[in-house]
């Protein structure tokens, strides 16, 4: 089937998943840092984190992608040169992952901020009463409890992020989307290949939604729901 392009498309699907998962990791770290900065008792950190999330969320992904992809390397190497360090050559994969991670970190910082604020304040105070430090209370008490509040927003962002990975094909990364276009152009059957790739995206989102249901149940253990 598909005139020998099956392996080619499957390799693209692997690339898409790799990009999505790697950017999710970057975004999660940036999102946690962003949320922690927004809630930290320090005005400068608050402002910087707020500017990050507001500016990034106000600009289309594609524009940021092109800006970071075309400009990011120039900027990074100018910075390295100023510091007297040798220039590094970003590969496309890294550039794509860092850009997507940077964008979705801003969205996740909002999700995490809301989730942290949803944990009752008494939990912090109880932790301090035991003599725990701020970071320790955060890691041991708040983080496990905020997961429940963060899951719906986190999954939502994951779904949007997975779909946004299609944009890396615009900057020449050989993901599923890029390969579908190539195979479609070579065989003069663009619709067929795009449709197949669409089915794979749909499969990824469907599996994610099932995992969300499972995770929601797992992290809501012991929570009493109001009866409606």
């Amino acid at each position: 089937m598909f005139e020998g392009y099956t392996g080619y498309i499957v390799a693209g699907a692997t690339t898409t998943l790799q990009i999505a998962l790697s950017s999710l990791a970057v975004a999660t770290v940036l999102g946690l840092i962003g949320a922690a900065c927004r809630l930290a008792p320090n005005l400068l950190l608050n402002r910087v984190a707020e500017a990050y999330s507001t500016l990034v969320r106000g600009v289309p992904d594609l524009v940021l992608m092109l800006l970071v992809f075309y400009g990011g390397q120039t900027a990074a190497n100018a910075l390295l040169e100023a510091l007297g360090l040798p220039a590094i050559d970003f590969n496309q994969f890294m550039a794509g992952v860092l850009t997507l991670g940077f964008i979705y970190g801003a969205y996740l910082s909002e999700t995490f901020r809301g989730a942290i604020m949803a944990v009752p304040k008494g939990q912090w105070e109880a932790g301090w009463a035991y003599g725990m430090s701020r970071p320790r209370v955060f890691l041991r008490i708040i983080l496990p409890q905020m997961i429940r509040f963060a899951i719906p927003g986190y999954t939502n962002n994951w779904l949007v992020l997975t779909k946004a990975t299609a944009l890396v094909s615009v900057i020449g990364l050989q993901d599923m989307m890029f390969r579908a276009r190539e195979a479609g152009a070579a065989t003069r059957e663009p619709f067929t290949y795009l449709l197949v790739v669409g089915a794979v995206y749909l499969a990824i989102t469907s599996v994610s939604l099932l995992l969300l249901k499972w995770a929601e149940k797992r992290y809501s253990a012991g929570v009493r729901m109001g009866e409606i």
Partner: peptide, 22 residues
């Protein structure tokens, strides 16, 4: 479900590049 589960870029390509196949 299908529209919300697939990238908008893909839908655009399907219409602009894909339909000419037929």
């Amino acid at each position: 479900y299908v529209i919300r589960g697939t990238p908008m870029l893909l839908q655009l390509y399907l219409i602009y590049y894909g339909l000419s196949q037929f």
